[in-house]
Design a protein around this nucleic acid. Structure first.
Length: 944
RNA sequence: GGGCCUAUAGCUCAGCUUAGGUCAGAGCGCACGCCUGAUAAGCGUGAGGUCGGUGGUUCGAAUCCACCUAGGCCCA
């Protein structure tokens, strides 16, 4: 007897070099290099030269520090959009940018150089800042590229490039010349020791010991008159509490909360007005044995606009309402000095009070002030307390320790002090109103973005543009030295802007006003010829806010307005808003048609990532361990409109999902090794029903994915692709078709039909996944059989559905067949696990006993069900009973259906492993079933 | 404290807003089997949910309303 033949050689087993193991960490850099060398970005544009433009305008990240998960998420989402829009037929350029100016960089540079603000010349600081920003741009650029994000990385936009700086100045001057810009005092953090304004970020909080005083503001006649009858008997004073006596000289008002109940109480021979909610606390603080009796009640609203007398200056203090007054401390009555506090300032604006701050840069009171003029404010505290005592307006004095802002350099306490600042008016030219109109016209995704930015724009104060710092674009303003007139006309600044184009904004600090102005400039008001240039720089939000002018309008491949801005939801206050205001103010419309927002990256429990919680996962760590592809898959799998969770478990799950998709594609490739689509592809209408049904399922997937790309619903795509791989292909089509693919003759129609489905599935999946799984799609692309549409998958187009429509009864028939299949598998599982009469399903014969309504259907589809169930034999009978060695299962899903499972008849074919009574019928090849005998004969004939 | 948002099985998501009435679904993971011709693969079955909580509207709510709790972004 001949030795046992190895039937494997006669089978069409999968063949492919496509590796099962992704090895992403190693392979990704190779693809990046390949894309870079082929000039992929340029080619992506070239192939869509005449297509309609879709401009996604990049919001510039700050050029400081490594990228984090949030910036990675943002850039990956943008990459999905750019790639998918291109595949969908648009010309989708992507010009990344960086935000380069501003305080954080300046602070870091000072730290590196170990110098304080003002110790180095501005130009020197600026030079170092520029180099610093450049350094981080280069680092971040590489980090972004590593994520597989394709764009014009060689020509990004930088807010510090000369032409960009010139644009900033140009746009500012436009605002200036159109009358939006004005100058007004506003309190800012101020260090009297360092003699400088401080930014929020330059302030640190430490405990500080301050006087704590209760001060009486005697009511003026108008206020007394507003009191109820019974309270008018004697002098009544509003009682306030403060820890900064030195701000009292600047007091212009006393604020009450309109919601609180105010009372007048008698304390010894004095009548005091305060909030009822603070009365007992006050009594305790003063050490009183009992709470003073309430003489009457007062409505805050009745006192609004009336007056109190200043406790020691010959001046009145306006009684105002403010809802930020709390009952947590003090008396419920708050002393207001608009020149020395943020809230005081806002309230002052509301009531038309002067922004009064009689304190010089070094912290000394104005010389004109009686008794305290010329004294340093902190030293004057004691003197002021003494004066209050003399006037009889001090009720109580102690000391408290509380958290108080300090200068980050000299560690001394800072103050709020009003200084001249530049603003853009929200009211000039109806800026606020027009911005709100455009908010309504823009498409906000998700829709609540509109409400959010609307609330902010409705309430926001005028835009304070000036910063007392070095690293930025100067507020290009000239003022006449003689009469103080501000030059607002555009013509005065043309030369400056020209010089910025050539030399950058440094030139403003290098040259004098006369060299920046056109020759012979005279003040339009007084004819003066000497001018002063402004020294402050612009808020960096203005820099990025005009990116539409510097980038969209100036780059030939882009256009204004953009189709889309896409940033985190914090940018409703930031870039979305600054861009909107800049564009509406100068162009009369929003710079974007639509705004898409994403949430923030949080940990597995939904908590924000922070150093103190120790739950930060840097992108680099994920890339090193799993590869950028897994990071991309993560971005695509989560609904980014909410907060986006990231944890080890999530990454583990995603890795599994990735493997499933990859392996499914590998199987498809392996079974197409001898398939030439140009020769072997079968038109859908000629395919058998099972194959047609799968193409229909594939087409439904295609349509759903294309729609999801349009709606930026990437997580639906990921779920859809994964599910199709796991269920439609792996569990159903592949499992069922394996016999056909392996065992039929290579060119058999049945096999080619199955391969046709595999081919369509593969090319469709590859394209659909390309924007998301960019590396893997490209890898598969290289192995695709037949001629390719393009050298890179990213130069291809999205697939069209192969078989969009099938008749309704066809669909129903196949849904029914799958319902039956699932009942058969349940029965098989019982036979396998409980009765242990079979191992794999081919060892089984199934007898179906249908209810009457299914009888005909089962008869007609007996053969189909046999291969769908992957059993060796399947028959339909009227009746069946359970005997030894069989399993009888009664379906719950399909009432009346019984499934009998028993061991298959005949013998196992050594080639195809199906059981058949035809095995052994041929003496020359007794190990084979009839089908395999025939196939092997055929192969022998051909090779002979 | 204010504005906006989120909360469905261990994980990621459907369903909810455009009309409240299939027993709330999917994939993964898990458990238990099978296979060894996708093999550091593949297949099957199964167990998992008070739909964040409490009230309300309704004959009936995961779906509508109110409040609460937890979390996020932006302010104060």
């Amino acid at each position: 007897m001949a030795e046992k033949k190895d039937w494997k050689e006669t089978l069409n087993l999968p063949r492919t070099d496509f590796p099962m193991k992704a090895n992403l960490t190693k392979r990704e850099p190779e693809f990046l290099k390949y894309w870079e060398e082929m000039g992929l970005y340029q080619k992506m544009l070239n192939t869509r030269e005449k297509a309609p433009l879709f401009v996604l305008h990049d919001g510039p990240p700050y050029a400081n520090g490594h990228i984090h998960m949030g910036t990675a998420l943002n850039k990956i989402l943008k990459d999905f959009i750019v790639k998918s829009k291109r595949m969908a037929g648009f010309n989708a350029p992507y010009v990344p940018g960086w935000d380069c100016h501003g305080l954080p960089i300046e602070l870091n540079v000072e730290r590196e150089l170990k110098v304080r603000r003002g110790e180095l010349p501005k130009l020197t600081v600026r030079k170092h800042c520029r180099a610093y920003a450049e350094r981080w741009i280069n680092i971040q650029r590489e980090e972004f590229k590593r994520l597989g994000v394709i764009g014009d990385w060689e020509n990004p936009y930088l807010t510090m490039s000369y032409d960009y700086e010139a644009t900033i100045a140009r746009e500012f001057v436009t605002f200036l010349s159109k009358g939006y810009v004005y100058r007004r005092k506003k309190p800012v953090y101020w260090c009297t020791h360092c003699v400088t304004a401080l930014a929020e970020a330059e302030v640190e909080y430490y405990d500080h010991r301050s006087p704590s005083i209760y001060v009486k503001f005697p009511l003026d006649e108008d206020a007394l008159a507003a009191l109820p009858e019974e309270l008018r008997k004697g002098p009544v004073s509003i009682l306030i509490w403060t820890t900064t006596p030195w701000t009292l000289p600047a007091n212009l008002a006393v604020a009450l909360n309109p919601e609180f109940d105010y009372v007048v109480v008698q304390l010894k021979d004095e009548f005091l007005l305060l909030a009822e909610g603070r009365l007992s606390a006050l009594a305790a603080e003063l050490g009183l044995e009992k709470v003073p009796p309430i003489l009457g009640r007062v409505k805050a609203r009745d006192l609004e606009g009336k007056h109190a007398r200043h406790p020691f200056l010959p001046r009145k203090s306006l009684i105002v309402l403010a809802d930020y007054v709390t009952l947590e401390a003090g008396t419920g009555c708050v002393h207001i000095a608009p020149g020395h506090g943020e809230e005081d300032y806002e309230t002052g604006l509301k009531y038309g009070l002067e922004v009064y701050a009689p304190v010089d840069a070094e912290g000394r009171f104005d010389p004109e002030l009686p008794e305290i003029g010329g004294q340093h404010i902190f030293e004057a505290n004691a003197k002021i307390i003494e004066i209050l005592k003399e006037r009889g307006n001090l009720l109580w004095v102690t000391e408290i320790t509380h958290s108080y802002p300090h200068c980050w350099r000299c560690k001394k306490p800072v103050i709020f002090r009003a200084t001249e600042q530049w603003f853009i008016s929200m009211e000039a030219n109806h800026l606020r109103e027009k911005a709100l109109e455009w908010i309504d016209k823009v498409r906000w995704i998700p829709p609540w973005g509109r409400e959010r930015i609307r609330n902010m724009v409705e309430k926001r104060p005028d835009w304070c543009l000036s910063r007392q710092r070095s690293w930025g674009v100067p507020l290009t303003v000239f003022t006449c030295r003689a009469c103080g007139t501000i030059l607002k006309d555009y013509q005065y600044y043309e030369k400056t802007i020209q010089l910025f184009e050539e030399h950058g904004a440094d030139i403003w600090f290098e040259k004098e006003a006369k060299d920046l102005l056109p020759p012979g400039t005279q003040c339009p008001r007084c004819g003066g010829e000497e001018f002063q240039k402004e020294e402050d720089i612009l808020d960096v939000w203005f820099d990025s806010g005009v990116s539409f002018a510097a980038v969209l309008e100036r780059r030939p491949e882009l256009k204004f307005p953009a189709e889309l801005y896409l940033e985190g939801s914090d940018q409703h206050r930031g870039w979305f808003q600054s861009s909107l205001l800049c564009a509406v103010g100068t162009r009369g419309r929003a710079p974007y048609e639509a705004v898409l927002t994403h949430g923030f990256v949080v940990d597995g429990k939904g908590r924000k990532m922070s150093k103190s919680l120790g739950n930060v996962i840097p992108p680099e760590k994920v890339i090193k361990r799993y590869g950028a592809e897994i990071l991309r898959l993560w971005v695509a799998a989560e609904d980014y409109r909410d907060d986006i969770r990231l944890s080890d478990e999530i990454l583990a799950r995603l890795t599994e999902a990735y493997r499933k998709i990859r392996n499914t594609c590998r199987f498809l490739l392996g079974n197409l090794y001898d398939f030439d689509p140009e020769k072997d592809l079968i038109p859908p209408e000629e395919l058998p029903e099972f194959e047609r049904y799968l193409l229909f399922r594939l087409s439904r997937l295609t349509e759903r994915c294309l729609k999801a790309y349009e709606n930026y619903d990437f997580h639906l795509i990921t779920q859809g692709l994964h599910q199709f791989c796991a269920v439609d292909l792996s569990a159903i089509f592949i499992d069922v078709s394996r016999d056909t693919l392996y065992c039929e003759a290579p060119e058999a129609f049945k096999r080619r039909a199955a391969q046709t489905v595999l081919y369509h599935a593969l090319t469709t999946l590859t394209r659909l996944m390309a924007p998301i799984l960019s590396f893997t799609a490209e890898e598969i692309w290289r192995y695709l059989p037949g001629p390719k549409e393009a050298e890179s998958v990213h130069l291809a187009s999205f697939p069209a559905p192969v078989l969009r429509e099938v008749p309704e009864d066809f669909k129903q028939k196949w849904e029914r067949l799958f319902a039956l299949r699932s009942e058969i598998t349940k029965a098989l599982e019982i036979a396998r696990k409980e009765a242990k009469i079979i191992g794999n399903s081919l060892e089984a014969e199934v007898v179906l006993v249908p209810p009457a309504e299914l009888a005909a259907f089962l008869q007609e589809n007996q053969e189909t069900l046999t291969y769908l169930a992957i059993v060796s034999q399947l028959t339909v009978a009227q009746e069946a009973s359970s005997e030894e060695g069989t399993v009888l299962y009664e379906s719950a899903e399909l009432p009346g259906l019984k499934v009998l499972v028993k061991r298959a008849r005949g013998r196992k074919c050594e080639r195809c492993w199906k059981w058949s009574e035809t095995v052994g019928q041929r003496e020359d090849l007794p190990a084979l079933c009839a089908r395999c005998y025939q196939v092997v004969q055929q192969i022998d004939d051909q090779t002979a």
